[in-house]
Design a protein around this nucleic acid. Structure first.
Length: 833
RNA sequence: GCCGAGGUGGCGGAAUGGUAGACGCGACGGUCUCAAAAACCGUUGGGCAUAACGCCCGUGCGGGUUCGACUCCCGCCCUCGGCACCA
């Protein structure tokens, strides 16, 4: 029986629940129920389900989940929820990277203990994460500032130390005057502290290092990880592998302990063009080589260089300077005696700290030679070179000239041949150098993991026995920064018996870089309660490596590089059986507002009031709707209206009573088929878009489906069965993005708790295929008509239909059709003359 | 300087060789209302126009490949991110 009533009549007569959508009324309710019933608790194994580890970079507990955090964590949560509804057993944990300077600085500023400050912040953030509707398993929460966690930093450090992967060494370190600590090279941006922007100065001191360079080549190998190319390129550049030759100049005439001076070059083909040698001011041979009459000048120059900041010294704009040592080096290949200079454009920390000066074929050497009147000798001839003086250094390959027996060779071959000779004559060797240096991880501050080492006058550097761990951070400390660790002023901490000889000795007082904590936290999440080891091997086996890692690109050469190093080191220590921590990585973009960075001071956007006003679901969806997640988005309050309307429409649709619709509905009327088609199509689109993190088009597709449902309801010729099926689909597909409203409507439409344990609907490709398609008819590539044709139209039929079109006839006229193109289901193109 | 990403309506964006501008915001017009808001419906790239389901132009700029280019190729410009005296 068919009944068609007016829309008003149907609405007022049959709607079961006319409640307005009120986020405040439902969101807390469901958050509490999810918590109570442990919906997001993740066992290590669930029969019949594969595991999926969805990890998002954990935050520093600044005290507030700001809107940038929302952008990051809402997207990550939606993806994790999507995977859960695809049928995976999903581990999506949350914790806090809770050691670090801000807590200590707050302690200095307002006299709160860093631990109190940190834990208060964590409490607030945990509350905010709940209000966001995230699906974390809080039973697995970890905080890195607790002894339960940091003792394992110490444990791993000791394993690394035994293996020679951690060592102490004296040298020039990056010192931040404002943070009052050293920082690693990765944490210096444009010569300034990554954290506070203060210019970094070099300071000579004892520091602890992880031997990350031992893995340089392996770290370059990234073919097997599915990461954004951008990050791979950044790591590649950072590691900076370059292949060259160590080449020795003879300085035996000076009777020093060293009879030769080694330079590193990637352009050994230019070696016959060497007209000088430059040493870094810090080079150990400078002292011995400097001749008496040059001593004063050289000393002044070195002092000057030492006072110059790193940022200035490495500026490409700066004019190159240098002074002569008065000494000469002999090029063993041609016996020439060339002057040795000191110049601060040569870095002590790269290669050998000494370079051979080839002004004709190196830009820097060229300007240096011009300035100091040094000879410029061409040894690589450009094609068609007429022998005249060069205007600038010639860097490209060419033909060897003035190069003894190598004359006439292409310079590319020259590199190999000359290197062979050098190796045969034992005056140098092939060598690979890296730009990356070892990871300097000791910090002169309080709020971090104490390095478990004891310094003994008789036994030297002695590791704390594993059984004595953790070396606890003393609760009381004088936080005022003095340039050395506050721990150094704590006699109770510093005085310890040497584990070796039992004599009084001193503890190491530096603490660890917080990047140590985050280098292995993904392992700890697998078994966060484990008391006997950093992680439990079986749990690690079931969860790692991380299937999907999510977070910002700003960690490309810090956290992401360190974590890869840790994993490889742990593998070699036989603690894990894989070499990469994160199989897939996705970087979300940056959220901005009014084309400007969001900042607490100048451009604020606090989430809590927004949640009060619109509800968490609306904020989550709006953030995901702004644009593709990897490209970031531009927030504007106005745009929220669109999401509000959409969610209200979903609420309205799901609240209608479909019993007044056609009751014979087996889904075979035209209208039913159309709605079914749309809903299957949408399912296909949404699942594909979720997979690729295209949340914005996911929502667009769902909005279109809502529009279609409203039109179909209006026309009234659909069945209750198809209607209900479509409502169900909309709720399921919306659930990862807007978990609360989906749960509420799921219950209201008579389903059992919880929607988040239900699998996403599948789709039927056949049902999702259009029966009638629009075929575009082009004449010479311009659209002239559109034809509605059956989906299974043949090529010939399509051409016939196109020919029959009046509009086409008007264009073709008497012209000759020289070519016809048919793209099945899409278009016909006639090429006419 | 080198490497990477990007440039599409008033705005956020969609479409990766086949109908450019999906979806949303805003704006304009309408319905409802005493009125307004909300809600709902319609229009909305620019120009021409005899007003036609009509024509021309249009995806940073200039060339090219192709029946057909936002999409591929070459050369530039601009924005953002990374690296930068690395020998």
């Amino acid at each position: 029986m068919t009944t068609t009533r007016s829309r008003q009549e149907r609405d007022s007569a049959t709607t079961i629940d006319r409640d307005r959508y009120d986020p405040a009324a439902i969101e807390t309710k469901w958050q509490e129920r999810w918590e109570r019933e442990g919906v997001h608790r993740t066992p290590d194994h669930v029969p019949g389900k594969d595991n999926w580890y969805a990890l998002v970079m954990f935050p520093y507990p600044s005290g507030d989940v700001h809107i940038g955090h929302w952008y990051q964590y809402a997207g990550a949560d939606a993806h994790a929820r999507f995977k859960r509804m695809q049928g995976y057993n999903v581990l999506h944990p949350m914790g806090f990277d809770s050691f670090g300077l801000p807590a200590e600085n707050a302690a200095i500023a307002s006299n709160v203990h860093p631990r109190i400050y940190t834990e208060t912040n964590i409490d607030n953030m945990r509350r905010q994460f709940r209000a966001m509707g995230t699906s974390y398993d809080w039973d697995r929460e970890l905080t890195t500032h607790t002894p339960d966690y940091y003792r394992w930093n110490q444990f791993l450090f000791l394993r690394f130390y035994e293996a020679g992967l951690a060592y102490q060494s004296r040298g020039f370190a990056n010192w931040c005057e404002s943070c009052q600590t050293t920082v690693a090279n990765e944490q210096v941006l444009d010569g300034a502290c990554e954290r506070c922007g203060t210019v970094i100065v070099r300071r000579e001191m004892d520091q602890w290092f992880f031997r990350i360079t031992a893995y340089a080549d392996e770290l370059l190998q990234m073919d097997d990880i599915d990461w954004p190319n951008k990050i791979k390129v950044m790591q590649n550049n950072w590691i900076g592998r370059s292949q060259g030759v160590d080449f020795q100049f003879d300085i035996s005439e000076y009777g020093l302990a060293e009879s030769s001076l080694t330079t590193f070059t990637t352009r050994i083909d230019t070696v016959y063009g060497v007209t000088f040698v430059v040493l870094a001011p810090e080079h150990p041979l400078v002292e011995g080589l400097t001749q008496p009459e040059q001593r004063k000048t050289v000393r002044e120059y070195i002092d000057q260089a030492a006072r110059t900041s790193e940022i200035e010294r490495t500026s490409t704009e700066r004019e190159k300077t240098g002074v002569r040592t008065g000494a000469f080096a002999i090029n063993p290949l041609n016996g020439e005696r060339v002057p040795i200079l000191v110049g601060d454009y040569v870095l002590a920390t790269y290669g050998t700290g000494a370079v051979m000066g080839v002004p004709a074929h190196d830009e820097r050497d060229f300007v240096f030679a011009k300035k100091y009147g040094l000879e410029i000798r061409v040894v690589i001839a450009p094609d068609g070179w007429d022998g005249s003086d060069l205007e600038e250094a010639y860097l490209a390959p060419g033909t060897q000239i003035n190069s003894a027996e190598f004359d006439g060779l292409p310079s590319r071959d020259g590199i190999e041949k000359i290197t062979d000779k050098i190796e045969a004559d034992d005056i140098g060797a092939r060598r690979i150098t890296y730009r990356m240096r070892d990871w300097q991880f000791s910090r002169q501050r309080y709020w971090g993991t104490p390095i478990p080492i004891i310094h003994c006058d008789s036994c030297g550097t002695v590791p704390v026995p594993v059984t004595d761990l953790p070396v606890r951070l003393p609760d009381e400390a004088q936080f005022k920064p003095t340039g050395r660790s506050p721990l150094a002023d704590d006699p109770d901490f510093i005085n310890a018996a040497c584990p070796h000889c039992g004599e009084p000795a001193r503890r190491e007082t530096d603490t660890m870089d917080t990047f140590v904590d985050s280098s292995w936290y993904h392992l700890r999440f697998a078994s966060p309660q484990e008391a006997e080891a950093p992680f439990e091997p079986q749990a690690v086996k079931s969860w790692l490596p991380v299937h999907q890692y999510m977070g910002g690109a700003e960690h490309a050469v810090m956290h992401l590089l360190y974590a890869r190093f840790f994993t490889k080191a742990l593998r070699d220590l036989k603690m894990v059986d894989f070499g990469e921590p994160y199989s897939r990585l996705f970087n979300q973009g940056l959220l901005i507002k009014d084309h400007a960075k969001i900042s607490k001071r100048s451009n604020p956007l606090a989430p809590d009031p927004l949640v009060d006003r619109y509800g968490a679901d609306t904020i989550r969806c709006y953030l995901m709707f702004l644009g593709p997640w990897d490209q970031g988005g531009d927030w504007s309050d106005d745009g929220l209206a669109g999401i509000t309307r959409w969610l209200n429409r979903v609420w309205d649709l799901a609240s209608r009573d479909p019993s007044g619709l056609l009751s014979n509905g087996s889904g075979d009327s035209d209208a039913d088929r159309e709605l079914l088609r749309m809903s299957h199509k949408t399912t296909r689109r949404v699942v594909g878009d979720f997979e690729r993190f295209k949340f914005n088009t996911t929502i667009a597709a769902l909005m279109e489906l809502v529009g279609e449902m409203n039109r179909r309801w209006e026309s009234g010729s659909i069945s209750a069965a198809v209607w209900s099926d479509t409502v169900e689909r909309i709720l399921l597909l919306t659930a990862p993005l807007a978990p609360h409203i989906a749960e509420e409507l799921w219950e209201r439409t008579g389903h059992t708790f919880s929607i988040h344990n239900v699998s996403l609907p599948g789709w039927n490709d056949e049902l999702a295929t259009d029966e009638v398609i629009t075929v575009v008819v082009q004449i010479n590539g311009k659209v002239r008509d559109r034809l509605q044709l059956s989906v299974d139209v043949t090529e010939e039929e399509a051409f016939e239909a196109a020919f029959a079109s009046e509009r086409v006839k008007a264009y073709t006229g008497d012209s000759e059709i020289v070519r016809r193109i048919y793209i099945p289901g899409k278009l016909v193109n006639f090429v006419i003359r």
